[in-house]
């Protein structure tokens, strides 16, 4: 079953947003998972006063090196048209994000596609890059091969990610492991220096985001199979692994040969699997 994600305007009143989500839930026939407010997530109290994790943060923090982030990350003032599509995948979802951003070489590229983890799936948040720097409404963002989370140099929230040791099977992760070390998206050196910290792939301007180790670059965007736990601002946790950057055939070719054709690869249509953890 596929669920096309509707963009939820970030400025929409909370009650109205909840209504959108509920409508989506009905369409998705997700039953109990959608019975509550969108912010009520598995493993989380969602601020309803019930048992749940403590929020990690509730107020925004100014993004450090904001000018340099805008300039060096080529952030844009208009929201991206790319959509997010979800398919139920066990207890979670398999999501496809159109992170094509206008295509390779697009100048200017589109903004990142911003999204939020919800019980109904990965919901696009209709934000421009520059608006996202002041918004706590999103968790994760995608453009081409760069994936950011809302913290540090990416946004004012406190979403962080930890890579699980080794390459555990995604299905085998059923709870938040102990002693994880979470990383926010700190990929610029401290002010006033504000120099981009590269991710080590050798790709010019590719930042060392908290999730950047989902890929390597031996000649194509090769999946590492790393599994991450993402800690959201409300204290809930999501397990996540990125499975594809290219289409199925090209990704397999990349995995096998470290190369892909020059065209027809379906690049930047990112597929990920994710689920809330209790």
């Amino acid at each position: 079953m596929q669920i096309s994600s509707l963009a939820v305007p970030s400025g929409m009143p909370r009650a109205r947003r909840a209504g959108v989500v509920l409508a989506l839930c009905a369409a998705a026939v997700l039953g109990g998972a959608c019975a509550n407010d969108e912010e009520t997530t598995p493993g989380g109290g969602g601020g309803t006063g019930g048992v749940g994790p403590e929020p990690v943060c509730t107020t925004p923090t100014a993004v450090a090196c904001e000018d340099q982030v805008i300039l060096q990350m080529n952030l844009q003032p208009l929201a991206a048209p790319g959509l997010v599509t979800d398919t139920v995948d066990g207890d979670g979802f398999a999501s496809v994000v159109d992170a094509t951003a206008g295509g390779f070489n697009a100048s200017p590229p589109d903004s990142y596609v911003y999204a939020r983890f919800t019980p109904t799936g990965l919901v696009k948040v209709d934000l421009s890059d520059e608006a996202a720097l002041a918004s706590m409404d999103w968790d994760i963002a995608f453009r081409r091969f760069v994936v950011r989370v809302n913290s540090g140099n990416s946004g004012p929230s406190c979403v962080s990610a930890a890579r699980l040791a080794g390459t555990p099977a995604y299905e085998s992760v059923t709870a938040v492991p102990d002693n994880l070390i979470y990383h926010e998206d700190d990929y610029f050196t401290a002010e006033p220096d504000c120099t981009l910290i590269a991710d080590g792939t050798g790709m010019p301007g590719s930042p060392a985001t908290a999730l950047s180790s989902y890929w390597t670059y031996p000649g194509c965007v090769k999946m590492t199979g790393n599994v991450f736990v993402v800690e959201r601002a409300d204290g809930t946790h999501v397990k996540l692994t990125v499975t594809h950057y290219y289409n199925e055939a090209s990704q397999q070719l990349c995995q096998d040969t470290d190369a892909v054709p020059m065209s027809g690869t379906g690049s930047a249509n990112i597929r990920l699997r994710w689920a809330f953890l209790p």
């Binding site: 295509g103 670059y217 892909v260 054709p261 020059m262 690049s267």
Partner: peptide, 20 residues
Amino acid sequence: ALGAALAACAPGPDAGSIAQ
């Protein structure tokens, strides 16, 4: 000044990388 070339060897992440 990015140096060598667009996608002359292995294609980049977007089928057109630039090697330093």
